[in-house]
């Protein structure tokens, strides 16, 4: 088994965790502001597609990332308009994002490339190795497997935590999620805060999608996110809407994914298809066993209207 649990496995776990971590951060910001966002999956697909399309059109993968940010903004603004401005049902609105995200990205592939399903290769974001980290004792070899992009993603976790828990903006955002009426009475523009939070969640989810499409791979494939947006949501719930624990859960999902992948090459007597269900089973088991009831911010899911 020592051959199985190698540095490569854990590195692969970290790589696989990134596209869950980014949408998780988005979902967490969104829900802490009081808006349910089950649309992360659709937003991720939009980002994955946008990244590939822009990278293909411009030939520059960095502009591809920018394209992902653009599609993320778009999907975020649409969801924010539906569920914050027009006070529509948040679950239904986000479901629409998922359906449109999956349908539209798949439909646009043949329009742009003239073929169904999978796009040809596009320029992918270079993942330069980090200098010197290999020499760090203990974690050095693991870090050496990571690229700068990965580190940026992990740094975002810290940044989101800092802003959410330590700054005035974070306090405002959390206030909107706990009690929109109280936040409003304190002079906080609840609609604006929530609008921004939902839009941001779109951008973060889209970046998670882009990571899959032009960092890990170099192409777009219909439904390529494989439910990672939903896993991100489960991680957030299991982490009880807190950044640190939710981050750890994401790492756990990444590890489960990595084990399933590695088992596929390693052994032939394990049912691989069942192993692919591992992260989802894990999520269910986690939700079934954890302590206390899963309740999020007090005002989540309630559209706000001034009395």
């Amino acid at each position: 088994m020592s051959d199985f649990f190698t540095i490569a496995l854990f590195a692969s776990a970290l790589h696989l965790a990134v596209p869950i971590i980014l949408p998780m951060l988005g979902g967490l910001l969104c829900e802490r502001s009081g808006v349910i966002n089950i649309g992360l999956e659709g937003m991720m697909l939009g980002g994955a597609f946008g990244a590939v399309a822009f990278s293909y059109v411009t030939g520059n993968p960095w502009l591809g990332l920018l394209g992902a940010v653009g599609t993320g903004l778009l999907s975020g603004v649409i969801l924010a308009t539906m569920s914050v401005l027009l006070r529509g049902d948040q679950v239904i609105g986000a479901t629409a994002i998922n359906l449109v995200g999956a349908g539209l990205t798949a439909a646009l592939v043949p329009i742009i490339w003239g073929i169904d399903g999978t796009t040809p290769s596009v320029p992918k974001v270079p993942t330069p190795e980090l200098p010197f980290v290999g020499q760090i004792p203990l974690v050095g070899p693991l870090l050496a497997e990571l690229s700068a992009i990965d580190l940026v993603a992990f740094a975002l976790v810290g940044a989101v935590w800092w802003v959410l828990m330590r700054t005035d903006m974070g306090l405002r955002l959390r206030a909107c999620g706990e009690s929109a009426a109280a936040a409003d009475a304190a002079g906080i523009d609840v609609t604006r805060v929530r609008f921004i939070a939902v839009t941001l969640s779109g951008v973060l989810a889209a970046l998670g999608g882009a990571y899959l499409s032009i960092v890990t791979l170099d192409l777009f494939q219909a439904s390529m996110t494989q439910g990672r947006g939903f896993l991100a949501l489960a991680a957030m719930v299991f982490g009880k809407w807190r950044v640190g624990p939710a981050f750890l859960v994401c790492l756990g999902f990444g590890l489960a994914d990595a084990i399933a992948l590695r088992a596929q090459i390693f052994t032939h007597d394990l049912p691989h298809d069942l192993l692919f269900a591992l992260p989802y089973v894990l999520a269910l088991v986690a939700l079934a066993t954890f302590v206390g009831r899963a309740t999020g911010p007090a005002d989540v899911g309630k559209p706000f209207r001034r009395a």
């Binding site: 239904i92 479901t95 629409a96 998922n98 359906l99 349908g103 539209l104 439909a107 592939v109 219909a222």
Partner: peptide, 17 residues
């Protein structure tokens, strides 16, 4: 593209929302 069906159903859901 056949996938347009998915887009229509998504948009229906959006307008219901």
């Amino acid at each position: 593209s056949r996938e347009m069906v998915g887009v229509v159903s998504g948009l229906v859901v959006a307008f219901v929302a």
